[in-house]
Amino acid sequence: MDPQTTTPALSADKLTKSFGAFVAVDGISFAIRHGECFGILGPNGAGKTTTVKMISAVSPPTSGRLNVLGLDPARDPRSLKAAIGVVPDENNLDIDLSVQANLEVYAGFFNFSRAQATAKSRDLLRFVELEDKAELDIDELSNGMKRRLLLARALLNDPRLLILDEPTAALDPSIRHQLWDKMRDLKTRGMTQILTTHYMDEAARMCDRLIIMNGGKIVENGEPLALIEKHGQPDLEGVFLKLTGRKLEE
């Protein structure tokens, strides 16, 4: 059998992160299959971004085990970071560089040659429909364009795992649909995805399976439809509110 179907793309075992005495992620365990879109939901401060930062090797776990694409992020951050892409929760595009230079310089960090970097940047600008904005400054882009550029930047190294931390926050519906289309497109190419979001419709639409976190712990996990049925709710939002302790009619 193909080892890809037997070993998970990612497994977390009692993953924990503390900041001083405060436990932000509290011993969570889960596994992600190759090629699926995996959702991490939870209210503000639940620990989603903290989890994502441990997975992407920028923040060392306090304890627990993590295996991402066969690598331990804490031991081999360089190889891991070469294999994944991250769309961060905040815009950190480089405002000192033009749109295309943002991609080209970033490609340099992945050891592209100058010519490769330019070619790949052009391709990706086309993919996110920003090819006519290549020479603009970052300040001249709308929010939706910035988010698309962040997606393009995360795709430079053809990642096997793409992590999207609230990629559609504060975007208008048509841009959200456009981003979802891109995500589906990438998924059909076999790219595993991790999606954190506050939009339950987005999670229901995009995620094959998901976990719901609250206070650093996993309070529920499963397929969106199965969770709706299990909790007897009309939709995922009902499940979310039930589990994270907030009532709909407040």
């Binding site: 920028v58 991250v86 961060p88 595009l93 960090f109 992945f110």
Partner: peptide, 14 residues
């Protein structure tokens, strides 16, 4: 403010 280092830390650079 620009969070440039955070962005670059997501690449193989340390």
């Amino acid at each position: 403010y620009q969070k440039v280092y955070d962005a670059i830390l997501a690449t193989p650079l340390n």
